[in-house]
């Protein structure tokens, strides 16, 4: 670990100001990801800005029925929140499917969104990794890539975004509110994380110095009927091989509303727009669910150890949709 300066910010402005310098700075929320990476010399910030004292710890219902979640709401609080459990049970399920109780007690909403990939080679200082060290190559493409992406990969990087919470957020059509020295802006959840392209080191549209202040979930009734399913190698405390968040509304045997997002398959939480479009107004049958899944995964590309994810993603989509009927 490199030596660094620690600063505690007491207000949003102070945090933004502290981060808007030339040296490398990092906000720290729960620290469950950042500290690990610093210990392994992967992240080497000069300054660490503690944002846990900022007044961004509430979950509130806005006038229009949207739910605003402060970026410092801990994962365990968010999962246990009554409004969330009633209106968006899928979000609660997704969070509870992630990490462990201890980690969720520490992890913050903002930190969860910004957490970095679990690619083995990204974590190993001695490996070649374009994300960590642009232009150095990617040891995962020809190496062990069982946990890697099948959608939206590039020749430079095939890593996934590992969050469970974000899959539910993307499905729910949430918006991320960020604040920087030029003021506040609002970013659709599905636009926030980027595909790797030629710059896998740039993971989100967040600018240096910008702070995530909250996440807003728009009102919608049909997402009450929603479900999160995570397929993994053990029953708890493992990242998703594939996960699916979905919500479904059926009227007279046909699909009136549907939302689907996938986790563990791409560099970002993957909203399955193609499958959603395919299913709209279609009859509720297992066959249609499978056809929709196939539509979504038409362009999927497997690597030596992860091709199974293509079939698994389809099966998991079908399994979740079936259960929502």
């Amino acid at each position: 670990m490199k030596l660094f300066t620690y600063k505690q910010a007491d207000g949003v402005d102070e945090a933004i100001k502290a981060a808007s310098t030339k040296t490398i700075s990092k906000f720290i929320g729960g620290g469950t990801n950042l500290v690990d990476l610093m210990r392994e010399n992967i992240e080497q910030p000069d300054t660490v800005i503690d944002v846990t004292h900022l007044p961004l710890t509430d979950v509130e219902e806005l006038e229009d029925g949207s739910i605003k979640i402060g970026s410092l709401v801990r994962n365990s609080h968010l999962a246990a929140n009554k409004i969330i459990r009633e209106k968006f049970p899928v979000l609660s399920q997704a969070i509870l499917n992630g990490a462990s109780g201890q980690l969720r007690n520490m992890a913050t909403t903002g930190g969860n969104i910004m957490q970095r990939t679990r690619c083995y080679y990204f974590y190993d200082e001695t490996a070649c990794c374009n994300k960590r060290n642009p232009g150095s190559g990617c040891d995962a493409i020809d190496g062990y890539n069982r946990i890697h992406a099948i959608l939206g990969t590039s020749f430079t990087c095939i890593a996934t975004h590992p969050s469970d919470m974000c899959v539910a957020m993307a499905m729910l059509g949430a918006k991320i509110i960020v604040e920087g020295k030029n003021g506040e802006r609002e970013i659709a959840f599905t636009d926030f994380h980027k595909l790797p392209g030629d710059t896998p080191n740039i993971e989100t549209v967040l600018q240096q110095g910008e702070l995530i202040t909250s996440v807003v979930i728009p009102p919608q009734d049909f997402t009450k009927n929603s479900l999160y399913r995570k397929v993994r190698d053990r029953a708890s405390y493992a990242f998703a091989l594939v996960s699916v968040a979905a919500a479904l509304e059926v009227e007279n045997g046909s699909i009136k509303n549907v939302r689907i997002a996938l986790g563990g398959v791409a560099h970002k939480p993957w909203r399955a727009f193609k499958a959603e479009n395919y299913l709209m107004n279609k009859e509720v049958t297992e066959e249609n669910f499978m056809l929709a899944a196939e539509e979504e995964l038409k362009d999927a590309k497997g690597f030596e150890h992860n091709s199974f994810k293509i079939g698994l993603a389809k099966r998991t989509m079908v399994s979740v949709l079936k259960e929502l009927v």
């Binding site: 083995y120 020809d142 053990r234």
Partner: peptide
């Protein structure tokens, strides 16, 4: 798992080397 190209261990911590947990 060992890397096929370098012989270095890939699954080198308890997040990547899985052992059963309570839920199992």
């Amino acid at each position: 798992v060992y890397d096929e190209n370098t012989g270095r261990i890939v699954t080198r911590d308890l997040a990547d080397y899985l052992v059963p947990v309570h839920a199992d």
